[in-house]
Design a protein around this nucleic acid. Sequence first.
RNA 1: GGCCCCUUCGUCUAGCCUGGCCUAGGACGUAGCCCUCUCAAGGCUAAAACACGGGUUCGAAUCCCGUAGGGGCUACCA
Length: 465
Amino acid sequence: MTVRTRFAPSPTGSLHIGGARTAIFNWLFAHHAGGSFVLRIEDTDQTRSTQESIDEILDAMEWLGLNWDEGPLRQSERLPIYREHAEKLLESGSAYKCYVTPEELQEKRKEAQERGGVFRYNRKWAEENAGPDKPYAIRLLTPDEGTIEVDDALRGRVSFDASEVDDFVILKMDGFPTYNFAVVIDDATMNITHIIRGDDHLINTPRQKLIYDALSYDVPQMAHVSMILGSDQKRLSKRHGATSVTEYRAEGYLPEAVVNYLTRLGWSYGNQEIFTMDELVEKFTLKNVGKSAAVFNPEKLEWLNSWYLRNKPPEEIAGLLVPLLKEKGIHAEVDEKLAKIVKELSQRAKTLNDIADSLNYFYSDEIIYDEKADEKFLTHEILPVLQDITRRLTSLEDFTMDSMKEEFEKVMEERELKLGKIAQPVRVALTGGTVSPGIFEVMDILGRDKVLERLEEASSHISAK
RNA sequence: GGCCCCUUCGUCUAGCCUGGCCUAGGACGUAGCCCUCUCAAGGCUAAAACACGGGUUCGAAUCCCGUAGGGGCUACCA
């Protein structure tokens, strides 16, 4: 039997970090086994599902590299299938029509709570409101006693008391299936073999098991992965910061970093931290997935992102950067210059945005001196040194890093100055600030004309002080 | 409240199944030092954990039982 996994988000928002990890696990598991990965949209909640959410989720999946082999299937387009199965259960006596309205149930639930008791649906109410044209929901007839056992790949056998499960609705009055019903029908008819999903669904499995049994379908292998928590150990939510894949993309994270981080959150492979997608596919097994909840740690994601930035070919990063720069009004293209810039700046950045934010001086015609830097380094004391350097560079035949270095060394020797003394003022003159790649690299990228122009500008700026 | 799940450094985790190799390993973060033209990167070092209490055993992070804490669910939401 070939492995088939699925990811089944409900389109009520963007792709959440937790959902993304579930998707990644399912994707990896399927690919590891040479099986297929199915995408299904659970849009049976008519009031909360939106097309925008669907688009955003699909977009985020593609960005992460999680391609699907089938789908996206939509539950809202499969209504007849659910109805058909519900009818079948009605015929076999495993389910029955219930005429109690949601409002009445709400009422009874409230009463029970006020009395301090536990609300439990009573089968006898089912027929009470019956009438020829009355709308009805369909409920599953569930056992009153015994235990319902579920085998989980991560947690072993989990058993529930049948008395905890009352006759629940499988088909709503509006003709839509409830979550538990739709999930089972879909997973069964799509021949899903392994269900990897969040811990929050563990409690649903006894209900689902009952449906599988009533329909004589095999129960897939379940694996309930723990949730991702925020720094306060509470379920990760907006107040913990960015929680959607889309936000991380906008902040300049690389998909490989996000995938790597999310996979390592709850899964491990010895002491290894960095994995390529191929390695992940090769090494991912459920056996190495942990059982306890994991706190989302933005610093570690940031570190991983910076690692990928440092190790990815500069040309590729340059390609990702161009659109970002365009938004900032910098019209760069993927050329030798940008590749050189990226090579230097990616060593010092945490995100793509960091790079985009710190290369202005390579493209602008005018540089603005940082006030403090100006005050500290562009001094009358250094003026002769700057002029000396300008003179030497002007007469330099080939403007290479080596030859520039030679000239700097001569100045250092003659004036008995350390490189630091000279490099900082030059850096301020060329970039406007005190932080940049190595000074020779900067000069090399800027090119002869700009370097000389800016050095002269700095000199006259000092003289005018 | 009831039911279910979980519990190793601040965080992600290795080790747990198949007790001794654990003086509990790695990574992020933090601190210090080195390197150094700034900032990074890199190198070295440090502080930092078996939730608690009972068993079982020659021996327990590892097995058993309790307790505590955390999380989840408790819908005609998914």
